Amino acid sequence: MDSLVVLVLCLSCLLLLSLWRQSSGRGKLPPGPTPLPVIGNILQIGIKDISKSLTNLSKVYGPVFTLYFGLKPIVVLHGYEAVKEALIDLGEEFSGRGIFPLAERANRGFGIVFSNGKKWKEIRRFSLMTLRNFGMGKRSIEDRVQEEARCLVEELRKTKASPCDPTFILGCAPCNVICSIIFHKRFDYKDQQFLNLMEKLNENIKILSSPWIQICNNFSPIIDYFPGTHNKLLKNVAFMKSYILEKVKEHQESMDMNNPQDFIDCFLMKMEKEKHNQPSEFTIESLENTAVDLFGAGTETTSTTLRYALLLLLKHPEVTAKVQEEIERVIGRNRSPCMQDRSHMPYTDAVVHEVQRYIDLLPTSLPHAVTCDIKFRNYLIPKGTTILISLTSVLHDNKEFPNPEMFDPHHFLDEGGNFKKSKYFMPFSAGKRICVGEALAGMELFLFLTSILQNFNLKSLVDPKNLDTTPVVNGFASVPPFYQLCFIPV
């Protein structure tokens, strides 16, 4: 009986604490739906499609509103004006990374994606500088992407125009580009180590996009005490870190300090320079996690976009025909596509942009946080508050993009057929937390897609009208449904 009384008292205290925290903070924060004790607004949000729920709530509470995930307040920004004001106009104040408990377990605050403060700034600055020195957006990395595009075309030829699921092959190409940047090595598509790495990356994007992960991140005790797919994700990350550590040891034994070959060499050189400046942010643990982040951000996002792009091109054969006509006119058949071609191919450029806009790969991006107490639109948001960005509300804005739910390359073309930029184009987020590999991803999408369409016609196994382009999961990332196609050599 005594234990029951204690339990009831504990629960009562928890409920009172929950109510007090919510009521004391709500006077400062933007308005929002009334949260339930302990669980907050979790029942009012469709976990399978958070973005749709945010759109519905914005119609009631406006472009800036507050939700509670458990006891934790989260300020939501919906629509271009609110997102721009926060991420661009007040970029420094909104540059923090929001709480992501599962990532905390995986990387302990290291790396480039989930770190904060001085650690994040130094690692991000170093990573950007190193990638630029190796030619991100310049010639040397373009050579690597072109080489991988040629290998991709050869792998597709091996399908002999038979029906195939493109998931694996389209994942190999961007993964190999990242391998060449980090390890100075590309792998054969049949290499077992490479296959294991690909498998872990593919599993992780599916797990991260599941409703279960949303629950884990908002009720963090689940991570330590409950079984579930989150444990598989943590094991996959541990596998990748151990693999990278092996490569780091190989580099330490063979590195030429006067001739760095890749990202690992550059990081080890930085560690050597910083060894007298303790404590340094440049450690082996930081290198492991930064490399894992580059793999995660640079492989599955690009391969998922490529997979979605081919599905949309199957669905819209008239678009595919126009792209192939432009390829034939500008590039021809006797040389590989290059980035200089893009400025002469406005329709193809528009298609690449429209694919990214339409699929809305990361509907709410990753959570941000404010780095200080900030007054925002007459609300006071306390330091450390998590900020949720609705990228969907920007990419699918119906004023900027008429009929935003329709796939239409003319969203990025003017009346004369010239490519038209849009400030609403934010597939990689915006501001200080914009994806480090934005330029690389854009290069890969253009070169891989043009190389495929230069060499193959795409054949659907069903009537294009019957192809479903609805994402199968739409949590962290929008993942396309399973499909097969035939690559018919031109």
Rank of each mutant, 00 (worst) to 15 (best):
D49K: 06
Y379D: 03
D2C: 15
I215M: 15
L380F: 07
R124K: 15
M271A: 13
A238V: 12
K235L: 07
S162R: 15
L313V: 02
R124Q: 09
K121V: 10
A309V: 03
I178E: 01
L195P: 01
R132H: 08
L268M: 08
K249H: 11
V473W: 14
V177G: 00
G332A: 01
E154Q: 13
A82V: 13
L467H: 04
Y80A: 05
F412V: 01
H410R: 10
F94L: 07
A291T: 09
L54V: 12
G27V: 14
G384P: 01
S162Y: 07
Q484N: 10
H276P: 11
E400I: 06
R342N: 04
I389H: 02
V153A: 01
K421T: 12
F282Y: 12
K160R: 09
K459R: 14
G32P: 01
T301Q: 08
H230Y: 10
Y243I: 15
W20S: 02
L17R: 07
C435T: 05
H184E: 08
L131F: 10
G228A: 04
K121N: 15
E300I: 11
P30Q: 01
K84P: 01
E155N: 08
Q454E: 00
I387E: 01
L458S: 03
H368F: 12
K241P: 00
I88L: 08
P174R: 03
R108S: 08
E285H: 05
N277K: 14
F412S: 01
N259Q: 12
C10K: 01
W212F: 08
V323P: 01
K275L: 09
P73N: 02
K185A: 09
I387V: 15
P227Q: 07
G228R: 06
F456I: 02
N403A: 10
H344L: 09
D143Y: 07
Y68L: 02
F482Q: 13
I182Y: 02
E154H: 10
R124M: 03
G442V: 06
C164V: 12
S23Y: 15
G296I: 13
S343Y: 13
P221D: 11
L311G: 01
N196G: 10
E81S: 08
K118P: 10
T159V: 03
S18G: 14
R357D: 01
V83K: 01
K315A: 08
T305W: 05
S23T: 13
P221C: 12
R139Q: 12
R124V: 04
L57D: 00
H251P: 02
L440T: 03
K421N: 14
T302G: 11
P37Y: 02
C172Q: 09
N418Q: 11
T34N: 15
E300L: 10
N116P: 04
T450Q: 00
V351D: 00
I99T: 14
I45N: 02
P63V: 02
S95R: 04
D408V: 01
Y68V: 03
N41L: 00
F419G: 02
R333G: 12
I264N: 01
P337A: 09
F412D: 00
Q356S: 08
T34D: 07
S12R: 00
Y424A: 08
T348E: 01
G137Y: 08
P489R: 02
E122P: 09
R186P: 02
F219S: 04
K322T: 13
E122A: 13
A106V: 13
I215S: 03
